[in-house]
Simulated assay, not measured.
Amino acid sequence: MTRTHRAVVRDGTGIAVRHRPTRPPGPGELLLGPEVAGLCGTDVQMLRGMRDDPAEVIGHEGIATVVAAGPGVAPELAAGTKVVVNPTHPTDPAFLLGHNVGGLLQERTWIPASAVDAGLVLPLTAVPEPDLAALLEPLAVVRYALSALRRFRPRTLVVFGAGTVGRLAVRAARRWLAEAERIVLVRRTTDDLPPEPVHAVLEPGADLAAEAAPGPVAALIATPRDATVGCLEAAIAAAAGHELAVDLVGGLPPAAGTPVLPGADLVALRAANRAGTPDPPEHAALSTTTGDRVHLFGHRGVGNDHLRIAADELVRAPERYRDLVTHGTDLDGAARIMRELATGRGRDIDGRRLVKLAVRISAPQPRHHEEN
């Protein structure tokens, strides 16, 4: 009988749980059993056809257990080890977990030798409680962003976007960006989560300048790619007369630019920092059309240390982040939710706004055991 495992598959026929072949790992490879996987904003964009990433099985956030290790894999990645996968290869664009290779929304995920050799599978010494595992990778993104912004000693932090990364950022800033005496959250949607610990919550277009403390301003932009440039322009306007540092965490449309920063290649600036390298990230010191100074950078992916620190933080203070996991389900429920997200424009699921979905993944049935 062919050994198979269950996976949430998106293909030309839609999104459904299907059986996929399971093969043992070859030399240098790993076979993982995902335990909990998250669904993020880029995943939703993929479901809605806004991105052309080819992976049929998505999901790059979560934790897993090593099921089998191929010949030559280091002993610290032996079967039974709890791990997190860094989804972004620092030098090989052919490995981007859940984007161009099969992701975590399945009972078994195969990791190629190139990713194992690059150290992208990290044994976990601090293992967050199950549902919080869906927050590990986005919290690592926040760690990288806040540590980079801290170099500029901002007195005010403005966070654009109230999705997972934005919410994590305002909660983690008190620990990782203590210099910012004022935190402002700019969001266009509301939900039933408790009020965030911020100086002000504003709608887009509100007077941001009135909320800034004297001194440098930092902006963390964690919005969908079609809103990133507009938020950058809002941050520049709000910080007029202040030194400004901006991290473009959110994606960008192709050839994105703004007349406020003539000649700035925003896409190239974001692409200069990949998988947490370099740390601190490269940035450009630019001047606006009004002569104000802007330190601008972005990044795609995080480093291994960011993931380890995020895991430690989730274990140390789970109560700070627990309510951000608004929905939890299994693979079958994930397929249903993904179909709803693919065909709609909003984020309301089962009568509540979705911030973070944690998909709890069970092991294959006994008749589908892997080979030893």
Rank of each mutant, 00 (worst) to 15 (best):
residue 294 V to K: 00
residue 368 H to Q: 07
residue 67 V to E: 13
residue 138 P to L: 08
residue 226 D to K: 00
residue 20 R to M: 09
residue 46 M to L: 15
residue 121 V to Q: 15
residue 129 E to Q: 15
residue 262 P to G: 06
residue 257 G to T: 13
residue 39 L to M: 05
residue 27 P to E: 14
residue 231 C to M: 06
residue 198 V to H: 14
residue 244 L to W: 05
residue 308 R to T: 12
residue 36 V to C: 10
residue 174 R to M: 13
residue 282 E to G: 12
residue 185 L to S: 09
residue 152 F to M: 04
residue 359 V to A: 08
residue 208 L to G: 01
residue 198 V to W: 11
residue 148 A to I: 14
residue 155 R to Q: 14
residue 44 V to Y: 01
residue 19 H to M: 11
residue 299 H to G: 00
residue 240 A to S: 06
residue 20 R to Q: 09
residue 369 H to K: 12
residue 360 R to F: 13
residue 235 A to M: 00
residue 112 P to A: 09
residue 150 R to M: 13
residue 352 R to L: 02
residue 199 H to T: 07
residue 297 F to D: 09
residue 360 R to Y: 09
residue 44 V to M: 03
residue 232 L to C: 00
residue 292 D to Y: 01
residue 345 R to I: 01
residue 108 R to A: 15
residue 13 T to Q: 07
residue 276 G to E: 05
residue 336 R to G: 04
residue 135 L to W: 04
residue 239 A to P: 14
residue 97 L to H: 06
residue 182 R to I: 02
residue 166 G to H: 12
residue 275 A to L: 07
residue 285 A to I: 11
residue 82 K to Y: 01
residue 308 R to E: 14
residue 324 L to H: 12
residue 160 F to M: 11
residue 341 L to Y: 03
residue 190 T to C: 08
residue 89 H to D: 14
residue 214 P to E: 08
residue 317 A to T: 15
residue 305 D to S: 03
residue 209 A to H: 02
residue 168 L to Y: 09
residue 69 A to E: 14
residue 8 V to T: 00
residue 364 P to M: 04
residue 295 H to M: 12
residue 323 D to A: 00
residue 309 I to V: 03
residue 47 L to P: 00
residue 155 R to W: 08
residue 61 E to L: 12
residue 116 V to E: 04
residue 296 L to F: 07
residue 139 L to P: 12
residue 46 M to R: 15
residue 143 R to M: 05
residue 138 P to H: 12
residue 292 D to G: 02
residue 245 A to N: 06
residue 54 P to L: 10
residue 171 R to T: 03
residue 96 L to A: 15
residue 165 V to H: 06
residue 21 P to K: 11
residue 196 E to L: 05
residue 248 L to Y: 01
residue 369 H to Y: 13
residue 325 V to S: 10
residue 186 V to P: 09
residue 76 E to I: 00
